[in-house]
Design a protein around this nucleic acid. Structure first.
Lengths: 166, 166
DNA sequence: CAGCAATTATTAGTATGACAAGTAAAATTA
DNA sequence: TAATTTTACTTGTCATACTAATAATTGCTG
């Protein structure tokens, strides 16, 4: 009986340690995916980073967005977004425009140059991104998406907002 | 026939775009997991970051490791590791010792203080880490691990080394 | 409408991540 | 054994992530 309890506790501890392993795996894989794409970007002299690209791409489907909208869309926080936008403004790919109704807001939009870049690079980048997902089935993608979303929701900082919905 | 081909191409394009979505989800989730733990660390005044913790934890199971070993174990590159070690040395949690046989190497080991910290925080941190993995089944963990490893291997930069094994 | 609270964006500070270049020591080889 | 290559670590630079603090503006409320 004692031994059995002891064993059970051991299993629980091992289980807990395993969760740390999952976090490690997740982090490692995300970094590798990013790094792989970034290396390809550099080799092909796209002169742009993954994160800068995600901003351009988001703008391409929407014409104009405020910092806040862009941050939400691309999953970045506002300070990070401000800096990335600064960089791609220097590269003359986007421009800031005042918001007509709210002087606090700034609208970001692609320049002609920026639009051209998105159009040109889109297919190549889609190709690069695909590499990560070889040897996986439709079923895998479904599960993967569900699991990632579950994790995300488990840690949802704004959960209380959800509760207000009902 | 034309229409069918057109439709097929559309599907392929949508498929490619979806891969970018997976990358986004992966990145976003990994950041959230890290951020959640970091916030908990701060609230509990652990006075340490996730990445610093992973170094301490690795050392706890091994007594001494060189920078190189530590970097591999924790999945960090050497410059990053050097900097993290610098920080936790300042915090007096680890110390650098010369390698007896190879003067290029430096061995890192926990101080008494560091060992105490690991022992004290381990259970609390395991608890924090668990939160992310709620609402998931054993089957999910198995799939998740397999999928992450598949992705990692798909992008393995050192693949050629594998080929040398046979 | 005056004062206060909330919102939007920026700036500053710290930490991590990736890559390139540099230094010192060991291992290899001619 | 001298010269070359490899290995281990460090430093520098740029980009991103997150927090906190600040400035400007808007919206709300008494």
């Amino acid at each position: 009986m004692q031994a059995s309890l002891h064993f059970k506790r051991q299993v629980i501890i091992m289980k807990k340690e395993q969760y740390t392993q999952y976090s490690f795996l997740l982090d490692r894989t995300a970094r590798r995916v990013k790094q792989y794409a970034q290396t390809a970007f550099s080799q092909k002299s796209f002169d742009i980073t993954i994160d800068q690209w995600s901003i351009l791409k988001a703008l391409y489907n929407k014409d104009q967005m405020t910092h806040k909208e862009l941050a939400e869309k691309t999953g970045k926080d506002q300070p990070t977004l401000t800096r990335i936008v600064d960089i791609i403004i220097k590269k003359e790919l986007v421009e800031r425009v005042g918001h007509p109704a709210d002087r606090r807001c700034l609208l970001i939009q692609l320049t002609t140059n920026g639009k051209k870049k998105v159009k040109e690079l889109s297919p190549e980048i889609a190709q690069i991104r695909m590499k990560a997902w070889e040897n996986l089935s439709e079923e895998d993608f479904k599960n993967f998406t569900r699991i990632l979303n579950t994790i995300y929701d488990n840690l949802n900082i704004h959960e209380k907002q959800k509760e207000n919905y009902d």
